[in-house]
Design a protein around this nucleic acid. Structure first.
Length: 924
RNA sequence: GCCGGGAUGGUGGAAUAGGUAGACACGCAAGACUUAAAAUCUUGUGGCCUCACGGCCGUGCGGGUUCGAUUCCCGCUCCUGGUACCA
C-alpha cells in the first residue's frame, strides 16, 4: 500500500470493530463508568445530512478519549421512531408507517456506520418497537397509580391514598389535585359508590383525564402542542388551528414544578438553557385574595405578586372566559359586554399576539369591594387577562404596572400612586421604594409591606401567600395513529388500566390512517379495539401518546435494552447512573429536557431508579446551516454571468446545486448536465472561471444546499469528515457548512500517513531514541489534547495535531517512540487511520484499548524566557533571560542591557513594573 | 419589550485570572519538481507609506480605568437564539 488509501482502511476497520464487538458495554465494577449519550434522531425520509453527525462526532471523540483513560463507556444509539412525518406519508400512500420507518432507520444506520462511530449497536432501541413501548405504557400505568403528596414532597401510590381516605377522609391531606375536588370525611368516602370513588381518585392521579382547551387542527385531525402552532397555523402543513375544549389525558408535571426548579442547581448545563427552563416553570411568589362583589353572593379571587400596592387598586379585570363574567354583567351593560366577549373569544392567538398595542375591554357594570379600605372598585373585562394563568382575574394598579396604566389611561380610570417617588418617563416607579397613601402599610418598604398585607389577609381569612407557577400540566394524548396506544379501557365511562400482564398493548392495524368521519382518532378504525375482562368487553382508549413519551425515559432503556421483565434492571441502572455527558441541540430546552427530568423524578419517587436528574452534564451543539450557491442568469437568455460581473447585466438569481460547485467555482460541464434545459447554457467568465454567489440558509432540499456525508466520505474519507466537522469552529456555535477548508484537513491526514512511511510508500519506523525536539513536539500535543478535551475545544485540538505533524515532518522524525503515542492521540478524532498505523506498528490489540500517553512536562521546560521590555507602555525590546530569576534580578538584568541603556539615555526610571515570566515595563 | 449569545484579515477561526493580536487552515501570489497537469515541497500574505531600513493605523462604534485593553467598566449600533400581554 503506497499511499493513504482511506477507502480500504476505513472499510477494513469498521468491519473489524463490528466483528470483534469491541464497543459492547458491560457492567464492570473494576472500572469507572462513563455514560455518553446523544439525543437520538427521528429517522426522517431525507436521510442524514452533514449537520446531524456534528454532535455525534464530538461525543464519539470524548468516549474514545475516556476509553483510553480506562473508563468503562456506554455509548449507544437508537431511534425516536414514532412521529408525524411517517404518518403523513402513510396517509398519502397507504403504506404502513412501520415500513417507511424501517427503511429510514436502515438508511440512517448505514450512514452512521460509515462514519466509524464507536456505538454499541447491540443496544440499539426504537421507540416504536412493541418491546420498547411496552415499558412506556408501563410507566404511564405507574403514573396513573400514583398521586403527589405535598407533605412528603413525593409521589405515592393510589392504594395508600385510598387507605387514607378510608381512615380519615381528605380534609387533612395536602396533595396535588384538581381545583374542584370536594372535601369529604372517612364515613362519607366509605359511603360513596365505586364510580364516585373512581371519579375522585382521578382528580389525584398523576396522569388523569380532564377537559382542557386545546389547539385543534381539523385538517390534521389532531391536537397540537403550543410548540407545534405558529401564529394560529400548524407548523407542519400550515393548516388553521382553533381552540377547542376536549377530554384529554394530562400529566401533572406541575406537581414537580418546585423540584424541577431546584434540580437545575445540581446539573452542569449551560446557564442559558437553565434560564429557559426557569422561565418556562415561571415561579412567582405572591398572594391570592378574594374581593367581595357589591350586592352579590359571589366573590372574585385574584393572584398578585404586588399585594403591597393593594391601596392603589382602582379596578379589577377579568378574562373574557372567566366563569363569573356572565353573572356580573348588569342589564344595561349586557348588549355591549356580550358583544365584546364574543369578539375577544373569537380572536385567534395570532391576532392577540401580533396586536399587543390595541387596548380593549368593557365594563361589567358591577363593583367589587377592596377589603383593605372598603372602597368600591369597578369590575372590567379585558382580554389582556389570560384565563389560563393564576385565577383569570387581576387587581389592577395603574400607577405601578404598565399594562394596567395603559388600560386605565385608555378608559379614563383612576391612577393612584402608592409608592413614593416622582413620575419619570410617563410612569411611576414600579419596584422598590416606600409605600405611601396606603393605610396601615404606609411608610413600609416593599418587602415588609407585602408581609404585613399577607398577615392581614390570613387574619381576615380572605386570602393567603401563594406561589404560582406559569407551567401548565402537560397534555398527553394525540389523535394520531403512529404513537403508543394508552393501556386504558373505559367502563361506566371511567378509565381503567388494563392488566399489566397484557402489556404491551400493541398498535392495531387500520385500513386508513386518517381520523374517522365523525372526528374520532384513527384507532377507532381498528377492528375489535376492545379489552376483554372477566366481566365483559370494554372499549379501549383511541388516542395515542405524544411524541415525547418514548423519548422521556430512553436513556434508562439503553442500559438494559433487551430485558423482558423490567424497564431496566435495578443493578444495571445503579451502575450506569446518570448520563455523564449529553449532547444535543438547545431547541429541546423546554420540551424533551423538561419531560425527561419529570419522569426521572417520578421514577425516583417510586424507587424504580436511583437518580433524580437524568443528564448530569450537557453540551448543546450549534446547528450547521446550509451554504447555498447562486448563479446569475441574464434575463430572457440562457447565458450565465460570473458573480463579479453580474452588475453589468440585468440578471436573475438562481440556486445551483452546491455539489457541482467547488470553492465557489462552478463546474461548467456538470452544470450543463444538471438539468436538461441547461444543456446549451453559455457563460460569461471572469479570469476563465465561473464564480458563484453564496448565501447562508437553513439546509433544505429546495435550496439545493443539502450536503450528504456519504459524498464527503467517498471523496475524502470518514476521518477527514470527522476532523473537518470539528475544525469548522467551536461546537456550540451556529455555522454554515462549507467545504472550502476541507482540503487542509485531508492534507493533514496524508502528511500523518507519510510520517510512518518512506517516500516510496514503504512502512518504515525506526527504534532509535527520539531527540529532545521530537519529544517536545509530542508532549506539547499531549498537553494540548488533554486540555482541549476538558474544555470541549475540539477545533483547536485539530490545529495542534497539524502543528505537531508539521514539526515532525520538518524534523524528518520516524521514531517509534514518537509515532506510537501520536497514533493514540489522534485516534479519537481519526480512528480508522490511527487503527491502521497502530497495527502497522506491530500492535496486536486495537488502539481503542491502548492507554493515553503520559504527559511529561520536562520536555517542555525552556531555560530562557523572552521578556518584552516596554518603555512608557511602548514595546521596545525582547530580552532573553533565565527563567529562574527573581523579580529584582529581572529588573536589574533588564536595566543593565545595552539596548535598554541606549533608550534610557542616562535617565533614571520613575517606576519599573516586572511581571515574572511575562513582561518588564519601564516608566520614565 | 424582556432574557441569553455574539461582532477579530479576502474566508473559517486562534489568543481573555489584561502582557509581542491574527495560531492553525482555506484562498491568493511567487518559486521548485514535471513535456504538461495533478499531487508534493519552499517562500510570502491585516491595511497604508517606504526600493529598503523602518514607520503609522488596526479586534463593530464612542468614552473610561491602566505603564499596557480583543480581554475589565459605562453608553450605543448591528447580527443572532429564546420568549411573548404571567398580574
Amino acid at each position: 500500500m503506497a499511499d493513504y488509501n482511506f477507502q480500504e482502511i476505513e472499510k477494513k476497520w469498521q468491519s473489524t470493530w463490528e466483528k470483534s464487538g469491541i464497543f459492547k458495554a458491560k457492567v464492570d465494577y473494576s472500572k469507572p463508568k462513563f455514560y455518553s449519550l446523544d439525543m437520538f434522531p427521528y429517522p426522517s425520509g431525507a436521510g442524514l445530512h452533514v449537520g446531524h453527525p456534528l454532535g455525534y462526532i464530538a461525543s464519539d471523540i470524548i468516549t474514545r478519549y475516556k476509553r483510553l483513560h480506562g473508563f468503562n463507556v456506554l455509548h449507544p444509539m437508537g431511534y425516536d421512531s414514532f412521529g408525524l412525518p411517517a404518518e403523513q406519508y402513510a396517509i398519502q400512500t397507504g403504506q404502513h408507517p412501520a415500513i417507511t420507518t424501517e427503511e429510514n432507520i436502515k438508511r440512517y444506520t448505514e450512514q452512521l456506520k460509515n462514519i466509524g462511530f464507536a456505538f454499541d449497536w447491540n443496544k440499539e432501541i426504537r421507540t416504536s418497537d412493541a418491546s420498547y413501548y411496552k415499558w412506556t405504557q408501563w410507566i404511564f400505568m405507574q403514573l396513573f397509580d400514583s398521586y403527589y403528596d405535598k407533605t412528603a414532597d413525593k409521589a405515592k401510590s393510589i392504594d395508600s391514598l385510598m387507605k387514607l381516605f378510608e381512615s380519615e377522609g381528605n380534609s387533612k391531606l395536602d396533595a396535588v389535585c384538581d381545583e374542584e375536588t370536594p372535601e369529604f370525611t372517612a364515613p362519607e368516602w366509605n359511603d360513596f359508590t365505586q364510580k364516585r370513588k373512581q371519579e375522585i381518585l382521578l382528580q389525584y392521579r398523576l396522569t388523569f383525564l380532564a377537559e382542557t382547551t386545546v389547539n385543534w387542527c381539523s385538517a390534521l385531525g389532531t391536537v397540537l402542542s403550543n410548540d407545534e402552532v405558529k401564529d394560529g397555523f400548524s407548523e407542519r402543513g400550515g393548516h388553521p388551528v382553533e381552540r377547542k375544549k376536549m377530554m384529554q389525558w394530562s400529566m401533572r408535571i406541575t406537581a414537580y414544578a418546585e423540584r424541577l426548579l431546584q434540580g437545575l442547581d445540581t446539573v452542569e448545563w449551560t446557564e442559558p438553557i437553565k434560564e429557559m427552563q426557569r422561565n418556562w416553570i415561571g415561579k412567582s411568589i405572591g398572594a391570592e385574595m378574594v374581593f367581595q362583589i357589591k350586592d352579590h353572593q359571589k366573590s372574585i379571587k385574584v393572584f398578585t405578586t404586588r399585594i403591597d400596592t393593594i391601596y392603589g387598586v382602582t379596578y379589577l379585570a377579568l378574562a373574557p372566559e372567566h366563569e363569573l363574567v356572565d353573572e356580573l354583567i348588569t342589564e344595561e351593560k349586557r348588549t355591549e359586554a356580550e358583544a365584546y366577549i364574543e369578539v375577544a373569544k373569537n380572536r385567534s392567538d395570532r391576532d392577540r399576539m401580533s396586536d399587543v398595542k390595541t387596548i380593549s375591554g368593557t365594563f361589567t357594570g358591577s363593583y367589587a369591594i377592596n377589603p383593605f379600605n372598603r372602597e368600591e372598585i369597578p369590575v372590567w373585562i379585558a382580554d389582556y387577562v389570560l384565563i389560563g394563568y393564576g385565577t383569570g382575574a387581576v387587581m389592577a394598579v395603574p400607577a405601578h404596572d404598565e399594562r394596567d396604566y395603559n388600560f386605565a389611561n385608555h378608559f379614563g380610570l383612576e391612577v393612584r400612586q402608592v409608592i413614593e417617588g416622582s413620575m419619570e418617563n410617563g410612569s411611576f416607579p414600579g419596584k422598590g421604594g416606600v409605600i405611601t397613601n396606603s393605610g396601615f402599610i404606609s411608610g413600609l418598604e416593599m418587602k415588609d409591606a407585602i408581609q404585613e398585607a399577607i398577615d392581614f389577609l390570613e387574619k381576615e381569612k380572605i386570602g393567603n401567600g401563594k406561589v404560582q407557577y406559569r407551567m401548565r400540566d402537560a397534555i398527553f394524548t394525540r389523535q394520531r395513529y403512529w404513537g403508543e396506544p394508552l393501556p386504558v379501557y373505559f367502563k361506566d365511562s371511567l378509565p381503567h388500566l388494563i392488566d399489566q400482564k397484557d402489556l404491551p398493548l400493541v398498535l392495531p392495524d387500520v385500513n386508513k390512517y386518517l381520523p374517522t368521519e365523525d372526528g374520532e382518532p384513527p384507532l377507532a378504525r381498528a377492528k375489535d379495539w376492545n379489552y376483554k375482562t372477566s366481566d365483559g368487553e370494554y372499549p379501549l382508549e383511541k388516542s395515542t401518546m405524544p411524541g415525547w413519551a418514548g423519548s422521556s425515559w430512553y436513556f434508562f432503556r439503553f442500559m438494559d435494552p433487551d430485558n423482558p421483565e423490567r424497564f431496566v434492571d435495578p443493578e444495571k441502572a445503579k451502575y450506569w447512573g446518570a448520563v455523564d455527558l449529553y449532547i444535543g441541540g438547545a431547541e429541546h430546552a423546554t420540551g424533551h429536557l423538561l419531560y425527561s427530568r419529570f419522569w426521572t423524578k417520578f421514577l425516583y419517587d417510586i424507587e424504580a431508579v436511583a437518580i433524580e436528574e437524568p443528564f448530569q452534564k450537557m453540551i448543546n451543539q450549534g446547528m450547521i446551516q446550509g451554504r447555498s450557491n447562486m448563479v446569475y442568469r441574464i434575463k430572457g437568455t440562457n447565458a450565465f454571468v460570473s458573480q463579479g460581473l453580474k452588475d453589468q447585466y440585468d440578471t436573475s438569481e438562481m440556486h445551483v446545486d452546491v455539489n457541482i460547485v467547488h470553492n465557489d467555482q462552478l463546474n461548467l460541464d456538470k452544470f450543463k448536465e444538471w438539468r436538461p434545459d441547461l444543456g446549451n447554457a453559455e457563460f460569461i467568465l471572469e479570469d476563465g472561471k465561473y464564480i458563484c454567489g453564496a448565501e447562508v440558509e437553513k439546509m433544505s432540499k429546495s435550496k439545493y444546499n443539502v450536503v450528504n456525508p456519504d459524498d464527503i466520505i467517498e471523496r475524502y474519507g470518514a476521518d477527514t469528515l470527522r476532523l473537518y466537522e470539528m475544525f469548522l469552529g467551536p461546537l456550540e456555535q451556529f455555522k454554515p457548512w462549507n467545504t472550502n477548508g476541507i482540503d487542509g484537513v485531508f492534507k493533514f491526514l496524508k502528511k500523518l500517513w507519510r510520517l510512518y512511511h518512506t517516500q516510496e510508500g514503504e512502512f518504515s519506523v525506526s527504534d532509535n531514541p527520539a531527540s529532545q525536539e521530537e519529544l517536545k513536539a509530542l508532549h506539547k500535543t499531549i498537553k494540548k489534547t488533554q486540555e482541549d478535551m476538558e474544555n470541549y475545544s475540539f477545533n483547536t485540538s485539530v490545529s495542534s495535531f497539524m502543528i505537531c505533524v508539521n514539526d515532525l515532518s520538518g524534523l524528518k522524525c520516524n521514531k517509534r517512540e514518537i509515532l506510537e503515542p501520536l497514533a493514540i492521540l489522534v485516534s479519537p478524532y481519526a480512528p480508522h487511520i490511527a487503527e491502521e498505523l497502530w497495527s502497522l506498528l506491530g500492535n496486536k490489540d486495537s488502539v481503542v484499548t491502548a492507554s493515553f500517553p503520559v504527559f511529561d512536562a520536562q520536555y517542555l521546560i525552556e531555560n530562557f524566557h523572552e521578556y518584552p521590555v516596554s518603555i512608557n507602555g511602548k514595546m521596545r525590546a525582547k530580552l532573553s533571560l533565565p527563567l529562574s530569576l527573581s523579580k529584582e534580578e529581572i529588573e536589574k538584568s533588564a536595566l543593565k542591557d545595552t539596548v535598554v541603556q541606549k533608550w534610557l539615555e542616562g535617565k533614571t526610571p520613575k517606576k519599573i513594573i516586572v511581571v515574572p515570566g511575562k513582561i518588564v515595563n519601564i516608566v520614565l
